[in-house]
Amino acid sequence: MPDWIAVCDVDVIDLEDVIRFDHGGKTYAVYRSPDGTPFATDGLCTHEKVHLADGLVMDDTIECPKHNGRFNYRTGAALRAPVCVNLSTYPARIADGRIEIQI
């Protein structure tokens, strides 16, 4: 069973924004949607190794900062070329004022 790992205090991530989170040799992108719900995906774009945390969150999509590939960060679905492969997503929650992800 994957562990719940604390990422940061809730208010570290703005609404409709994303941060990079490195853990156990892997990199993740952790989001807050416009209504404050946390989400987590793999940190690198599936097109090329670009950190999604440098990209722009618009509603429920994250845009890769290099090539404009877009994913739905809630589902991981690839939405726009040049990305063709979906992102892996991970459960995320808020516990005691902190965002945790299950990895």
Partner: peptide, 10 residues
């Protein structure tokens, strides 16, 4: 050219 230009940026 969409793909070509993506490579140009990479």
């Amino acid at each position: 050219w969409r793909w070509s230009h993506a490579r140009h940026h990479t």
